[in-house]
Nucleic acid binder design. Structure first.
Lengths: 202, 202
DNA sequence: CTAGGTCTAGACCTGTTAGTCTACATATCA
DNA sequence: TGATATGTAGACTAACAGGTCTAGACCTAG
């Protein structure tokens, strides 16, 4: 059978590197196989399409990111959830560049491959559930305004704070945590009431 | 001479619509000319390349956006500058979608057409000068940490707050201003000390 | 009224992309 | 040993991209 010279993980890894170096749009089937010195046939033997590759790549990182975020939310540690973004970015710089510098649509534009749709939907639902839980904790309600605040403080602000550094491919400095923390306390002061406090509030 | 059936502005307008509807990547010379029912020759008679079109489009919006931002900065109205983003987005929803939902690289990837390079550089310099001025006002210094804070509070946070609404092509609600204001006061409390105050601080 | 510049018109060229197809190599198992 | 599953190998196709080129329509100037 020609014992596999290439496996899925290698294609994924090559694609990951290309995303980080040049962005998702520059990840073509040719560029991936060339980097691996693999023939196109091998690629299509393992992946149904380019979308299947890029979708899997994105989902992998998204799930990895989510893990720590969900853990913090489950512990009702709102500030921890907000600070998870810079923390995870430091620990997984490559994955962070891939996931946080681009949007899901940059990976798969139209319809997702059916094999991945369920995963993507679940991912989105988990985020929504987390925001709901946090909104109740921090604001005492889960109306659209509270949900909007939750998203702002847990996702949008941390993402915005981290992005400029990821663009330079460098780990977010401590200042980023400070900015996120200040914002968090300004907008959701009640949210870490019951939490262990080790914060160095600015 | 065949008195011009199409002018630059029409191509720009068609391209703008396409950006808003489908994103910059979907703006091809063919899609633009088809929408206008113009022949390709007319397009290339007026624009040197696709990059020239998209570059001009981006720069137009960037300069328009900058106007109000700079006015606020020149008046040492830091909070006004931070709130300029949602205000401008309300007044110019289409331009805001174009400018704030995508990055400069989504319009012109590699080298910019030489005719636009100067404009882009000046644009970037004006932003930097504005941030410097604000950093001095708000933090009393212009080191890298202060500059980082300035960018966070004047650009990154307002952008992050506005984005989810622009994605749905809807005007940012008042809550967005409140989020930006709270963040601003948490991070740059000194900055609007000397300002006329009409803010409804949350 | 005609010469020349301005602009439309669209066929055409070249490169790149995702994806297909057929041929072939090799390890495993009967 | 030889049939088969598993995979490599890469030429090929079709679609579409940006960009070029030549023909000619039309206005204005002389």
């Amino acid at each position: 059978m020609a014992r596999s010279a290439f496996d899925n993980a290698q294609f994924l890894a090559a694609a990951r590197q290309l995303v980080i170096e040049r962005g998702p749009a520059m990840v073509t089937v040719d560029s991936v196989t060339q980097r691996l010195k693999a023939p196109k046939g091998s690629f299509y033997y393992r992946f149904a399409s380019r979308d299947a590759l890029l979708g899997e790549l994105w989902l992998q990182s998204a799930v990895a990111y989510q893990e720590g975020f969900m853990a913090a939310i489950d512990a009702d540690d709102g500030l921890g959830a907000a600070l998870h973004t810079p923390a995870w970015a430091r620990a997984h710089l490559d994955d962070a560049c891939l996931l946080l510098l681009y949007s899901r649509e940059d990976f798969v534009a139209g319809d997702w491959p059916s094999a991945l749709r369920k995963g993507v939907r679940e991912q989105a639902e988990r985020v929504k559930d987390a925001l709901t839980r946090f909104a109740r904790l921090a604001f005492g309600a889960t109306g659209s305004g509270q949900m909007r605040r939750a998203a702002f403080v847990l996702l949008e602000v941390p993402l915005a704070a981290v992005k400029p550094h990821l663009k330079r491919r460098e780990a977010p400095p401590p200042l980023v945590d400070e900015l996120i923390r200040s914002t968090f306390q300004a907008i959701a002061p009640r949210a870490d009431a019951g939490r262990a406090r080790k914060s160095t509030v600015a």
